[in-house]
Structures are given as C-alpha cells and as structure tokens.
Design a protein around this nucleic acid. Structure first.
Length: 568
RNA sequence: GCGCCUAUAGCUCAGGGGAUAGAGCACCGGCCUCCGGAGCCGGGUUUUGCGGGGGUUCGAAUCCCUCUAGGCGCACCA
C-alpha cells in the first residue's frame, strides 16, 4: 500500500484529471487532451500543501490564459471526498491546494504499525540488482576513495532494498594481472632482503611496510625454506599467502565499518574458468577485433568509446579490460536485471569501453550504470591532510574509522553527491557540538529515548497500538495541531518519498540531508511543545509522535549504517 | 588536443523546467527554577550570491551551444 502522501497526491491528480475532462467535454477548455503534469509540494508553504502546473502546460494548445484555465479546473473540481480545504489559482497559473492541517497525521499510526518497514517501497519488486563497490586492489590497505565507496555503496544497496529490489552486494577482487605480478616480485624482494640476500623491488612495485610485514610473518612461520625454490613457484606461494591475509584484513576493516558483502568475486576465477578467453573469442567471432603491433584490439571506437583498446597484449597476456568484459558479461549471465558499479572518477575513461564491449556482445549497455565518485580531500587543522596521525602513512579506511569513528565517517561520506569532491573535516567529525551534524541527528534520537524513559519512570502508559483498536487510536493522532507538530508530522510523511527519490537518483546523500532536517524540526518541536504534561490524552498523542520520529530516525540511520544511540 | 566531473552566500554544499533560489558552518544578538543547553529563537551579513556570453521556453540555477577557470583521465597498468 502506498504511503499517505503518495495516496493523497494520486487522489488529487485523479480529481484534477476528472475536472479537466469534464471541462473539455463541456467545451469550457478548447483542447482534447490532458498533458502530463506534476503535483508537488511548493517551496513556499504559503502556496499551499500541493501545487499543480497543469494549467500552464495547457495554455499553448488551448490558446487560453493559464490563469483562466486554472480557474475553470478549480471550479470543476469535486473535492468532497478529499482532505482539501481550499483551492486557489495563483502566480502564473498554479492551482494550489490547501489541505486540512491534520491531513497527514494518520502517518503516525502508520509508522508505529509498520515499524522498521515504514518507508519500504514496492516499485523495485522482482528486479534483481547488483551493486558492485569498493573492489579495492588487494595488494594493500584500502584508501580514502575505497572508504567513500564503501559508505556510498552500502547505503545505496540499503536504499534499493528498501525500494523492493532484490539486491546483491559484490566486491570484485583484482587478484590477477600486472599488479599481482608486481606484488609477487615485491614480496620476493622483501623476503630476500629480510634474509640478508639482495632484493630488488621492480618499477611499479610495492614499497609499503605491509609488504615487509607479510614476509616477516612468513619467515617466522616457515623460515628460509623458499630460498632454494625457483622464483616463479615461490612468488606464487607468496602471492597466495599475502593475498589471503590482505583479503581477510579488508573483510575485517569493512566489517568494522559496518559493510558486509554478499559476494566476493575473484578476477582470477574468470581466468581459471576460461571465461576471459571465451569472451575474447566471442568478440573475435563478431568481427569487432583486429591485430596490430602483435596485440589484439577491440574496435571500441565503433561502439561509442573514444579509441580502440587492447584485449591481448603482445606478450600474450590479456589486459584488465579483457577480464572486465568477461566479468560484466558474467554479471548479466548470472541474471541481474541491472548492474550498478561504483568507481573512482579516475576510471571514467573505462566506462564507455566496457559499455561498448557489452553492446558488441549483444547486451544492453543501459542496464549497466556506473557511478563515478570524485576525490576525497581530508582536512585537519584547516589544512589538507594526507598522512595518518598514527602511522604517518597515507590515511586508510581503517585509520579513518579509528580516528573519527564509524558513525561519523559513514555519515560524512554520504553528505555529498558522488559527483562532487568531498572535503572531509576530521576535526569537525569528532567535535561533540552542534557544529557536527552527525551528533546533531543522533542527539535527536537520544533525546527521544530520554523522554520515553521518563515516561516509563512516571508510569505513563501508551494506548495499545494493536490493529483492533485502530479506530480509538485515531483521536490521538488528530489531537496534534500545533504548528511544530504539524510540521514534524509532514516531515515524517515525506520519508517514503525520500526513499523513492534516493533510489531513482541513486543518491544516498538525500537520506543524510533528510536526517538533518527531521532532527532540526524535532528539536524545534521539543523546545516548543512539552511531551509529558498533566493532560493524559495529549501526553499520549505526543508520545506516539516522538516514538514515530524515533522510528523514522532509526530507519534512516539503518540505511546510512550509523547507530541510533539511546544515550550519548 | 580529446573525454568525464565541477563552478550557487565569507566557507562547505542542496536545488525533479515553475512562484520571493535554500541549508549547515562562520559571524552578531537573545533563551533553561520546566521532558538532556550535544538544544532552541532571531538576524543574509552595504544595491541582482547561480563563472561569462548566446539560444530554446509562457517561464532557465536547471535544457542546448559556446567561452573561461579548476579537478581527473586519455598505457600492450588496474
């Protein structure tokens, strides 16, 4: 069932269409069709609860002044079975609807009844979506970009789940290719050095301490037995050893960040199953490859990309691009109706060619959406910070969780749209004051918990919200008529719509903003309306309201992956 | 040179073709004998705060073209 706001909107739209149809039939408006129009909440509340732009859209075809059309529509409207109190035509021709102030109050009961399911949508039902994110290089720790991706991807997946989609969260492990070769060579070099031999880290290799630590641990466990082994075999062993630990570590760091994946998908497994070779052969068969300079190329420029791309290098090894085609083909072969990838903006050049390859293979590239995230800049003491306070190395995902905490990190990463650079103020994130938005929203929740504790201590009992007592419950909801109460209730009624918009636009930051707005309205309400009063019925009504606020905050926090503290 | 992203208040950013373009922070001034002051209320902060210029539209911060500025790409790396 739709939520109160969407139901009301739909009802009013139907009434408008009825009115227009009637007017056309009577010859009052010289046109023959009703255009697509919207019915929205105006920015300025003095313009009513909903406004329709239909009269302006009809003006041209009907050769009539929009205001006049609006008047005719308004006059023909049957509002008897609606919560409409007053209809006005204003401005350039908007039809403004003023509803009974308590029109949305029923939402309180709706929230209390649905609980954690309030906000859930049906429109994604039966659609399988894969969200692939983080997919960090397993050769080292996860960086800031991975952290943003983790927060964004996880919240997005939650939003899509709330919207009814069947969602799978996937992490693609780049455990094949050149960087793994370099990883192995770097490990080998450190191993040799640690045992007093000469080691040499190749160009493009890994110089980090973690490489050394892996080999130290290995030497402790297995000693120098690899010194006599041939280089290729021992490197294969080192790679397997260190990758396993790195992946385990990533899982742990992500778990500490509150992010769990359904599938960890290995790039190497595609090679092992022959899927990379298969997809290359398929492209060959379709005639969209050619050989040049000893390499095999894909005619990406025929499929919308800027230039052609190499599939197999002159040394006979497939490129990352080739395995990525196989990977994306595999995603669709697994039956996903829609695939969403979250990549760093520095990979944007890759988008057109992967889509081009999918097109060449006969898949619909529109089913793949790539969200490109812009860079994260960390600030500490008002200056750009590159290094971790603790380690002195580049700030990792684990560092940020340690420094500012999971809640602040996840909230901050989801405060901005993906396509804007994100400035992350480390000082602000740990401030326990009103400047810090994450404390502000969590405080609203804690404050409600405190009220509810007080109520319980005072022995105030709430009416039973059981379904059978529905009729008697309603009176409480409609007792709330103060300005702050009405505003708060309307905000609660917005929540399902916010979920829908966030899903449609793939924009978790909307939920973050919603939290701040809801918290703000709640704090205002708190300061102007006492919840626990001598009036038993009013107390009950307000207790239900704050419980509803608590529930919606909880649901929103759940999406963002932040905790809902009962005390702070 | 080509491609992607960005340009809105002092700062960081919202804004689904609509009415007088908003929020947070900063700054200034107020508010607890009362459910948590980690809160609330008020003030836009010297004429028009949507980078400049064209265009489409009844209507443009929003769509199109173009210019400028910044970020990021343009490997037989991933």
């Amino acid at each position: 069932m739709k939520d109160i706001k969407a139901r009301t909107q739909q009802l009013l739209k139907e009434k408008i269409v009825e009115a227009i149809t009637k007017a056309i039939h009577e010859g009052a408006i010289p046109t023959d069709r009703v255009p697509d129009f919207y019915l929205e909440v105006p920015q300025d509340s003095t313009h009513g609860d909903f406004a329709a732009n239909v009269a302006m859209l009809m003006a041209r075809q009907a050769r009539m002044a929009p205001r006049k059309i609006g008047e005719i529509i308004a006059a023909n409207m049957d509002i008897s079975a609606t919560p409409v109190e007053k209809v006005e035509v204003a401005g350039p021709g908007f039809i403004n609807f003023y509803l009974k102030p308590t029109w949305a109050n029923g939402v309180i009961l709706d929230i209390l009844r649905k609980g954690r399911d309030f906000g859930r949508q049906e429109f994604g039902k039966g659609i399988r979506v894969q969200v692939e994110f983080v997919s960090a290089n397993p050769t080292g720790p996860m960086h800031m970009g991975n952290a943003r991706g983790a927060a964004l991807g996880d919240a997005l997946a939650s939003i899509l789940k709330m919207s009814g989609y069947d969602v799978t969260k996937e992490f693609y492990i780049n455990d094949a290719g050149n960087q793994i070769e370099n990883f192995g060579l770097s490990l080998e070099a450190r191993y040799l050095e640690l045992l007093g031999r000469e080691g040499h880290i190749p160009e493009g290799g890994y110089h980090g301490e973690d490489i050394k630590e892996h080999m130290k641990a290995l030497i402790e466990e297995e000693g120098d037995r690899f010194l006599n082994m041939d280089s290729q075999s021992r490197r294969a062993y080192f790679i397997k050893y260190a990758l396993e630990k790195n992946i385990q570590r990533m899982k742990q760091d992500l778990a500490n960040f509150g992010v769990e994946f359904d599938v960890w998908f290995s790039e190497q497994s595609l090679h092992d199953a022959g899927k990379v070779t298969d997809v290359i052969n398929l492209l060959k068969q379709k005639g969209c490859t050619y050989e040049k300079d000893g390499a095999l190329w894909f005619r990406a420029s025929d499929y919308g990309a800027g230039k052609d791309e190499v599939l197999i290098r002159a040394n006979g090894l497939p490129t990352y691009f080739a395995s990525d085609i196989a990977y994306h083909k595999d995603k669709f072969d697994r039956g996903f109706d829609r695939v969403i990838d979250i990549w760093g903006a520095d990979h944007h050049g890759h988008v057109a060619r992967v889509k081009g390859a999918l097109k060449a293979l006969g898949y619909d590239p529109e089913k793949l959406t790539v969200i490109l995230m812009q860079l994260v800049r960390l600030y500490r003491n008002g200056e750009i910070a590159r290094m971790s306070k603790r380690t002195g190395r580049a700030v990792t995902l684990a560092d940020i969780v340690e420094e500012v905490g999971r809640d602040a990190a996840r909230f901050f990463f989801n405060m901005r749209s993906a396509d804007t650079h994100l400035d992350f103020d480390l000082d602000l994130a740990i401030k326990t004051s009103d400047e810090n938005p994450v404390y502000y929203v969590q405080y609203a929740h804690a404050r409600i918990c405190s009220i509810l504790r007080q109520a319980s201590e005072q022995g105030v009992t709430l009416p039973d919200i059981g379904a059978d007592s529905w009729g008697s419950m309603e009176k409480y909801a409609y007792m709330l008529t103060e300005k702050n109460e009405i505003e708060l209730i309307k905000k609660l009624a917005d929540f399902p719509g916010e979920i829908r918009l966030s899903a449609e636009n793939l924009s978790p930051y909307r939920i973050t903003n919603y939290c701040m707005e809801l918290a703000s309205i709640f704090h205002s309400f708190y300061n102007s309306c006492r919840v626990l009063t001598e009036d038993r019925d009013l107390t009950a009504a307000r207790l239900m309201l704050v419980q509803a606020v608590q529930q919606v905050l909880k649901n929103a926090f759940g999406i963002l992956g932040i905790s809902a503290p009962e005390r702070m």
